[in-house]
Amino acid sequence: MAYDNKNFGDNRNNESLFSKRIKAGKRRTYFFDVRSTRGNDYFITITESKKRFDDNGYDRHKMFLYKEDFNKFLNALTETVNYVKTELMPDFDFDAYNHDQDAEGEETTMSTSSVSEAEDGGVDDWKM
C-alpha cells in the first residue's frame, strides 16, 4: 500500500511523504518511507518490524538511505539478488512468492516488472 502525504510544508516531525509496506510472513513487515530533511532534501528509511514471539510488542530495525547512495544501493541489491537467483538457486520458483494480502485479507498477485527490468537493463533504467 503506497500513499502520498500532503503535508509537504512544515515537516518538522519528519512524517513520511510516501510509504510502501511489504508484509513478509506472519511476524515480519518492511516499510519503505520517503522523508524530508529540514533543508527540504529527501532520504529513504527502510524499517524491518518483527512481532516478538511473546506477543509483547515489536522489534524494529531502521536503515537510512541517502540520495547519493541510491544507485549504489540498487546496483548492489540487484547484483546480490541475481546471484542468489542464478547461481545458488536457479531452479527455485521465486515468482511463487509474488503475492500480498489486500485490505480484506485476500491474496493478490504483485507484478515482477521491476525485477525483470533490472535483469534486462540494470537499475539505472528503473523508474522511481
Rank of each mutant, 00 (worst) to 15 (best):
Y58E: 11
K72F: 10
G57F: 09
F43E: 07
N75I: 02
V84M: 03
M63V: 10
Y83Q: 02
G39I: 10
N40E: 12
F64I: 07
R38L: 02
K62Q: 07
K62A: 12
N56I: 07
G57W: 11
T78F: 01
G39W: 08
V84G: 05
R60F: 01
R38Y: 02
F73S: 02
F64K: 12
Y42N: 03
D69M: 03
R52Y: 02
T78Y: 02
E79T: 06
T80P: 07
R52F: 04
I46S: 00
I46V: 04
F43N: 05
D54H: 06
F70Q: 07
F43M: 04
V84K: 09
G39M: 13
G57H: 14
T78K: 03
K51L: 07
T47D: 14
D41A: 10
F64A: 08
S49Q: 03
D55G: 00
F43K: 06
K62L: 03
D59C: 03
N75V: 04
F73M: 09
Y42H: 14
R60G: 14
D69G: 01
H61R: 12
G39H: 13
R52L: 13
M63W: 00
M63H: 00
L65V: 11
I44S: 00
T47K: 13
E79F: 09
T80H: 15
F73L: 05
T45A: 01
L74N: 09
D59R: 13
A76K: 03
L77G: 01
S49L: 05
H61S: 08
T80Y: 11
E48N: 03
E68W: 05
T47Y: 09
Y66L: 01
N75S: 13
E68Y: 08
K50I: 04
G57N: 04
H61E: 13
F43Q: 15
R38M: 14
M63R: 00
I44L: 00
D54T: 13
V84A: 03
Y42S: 14
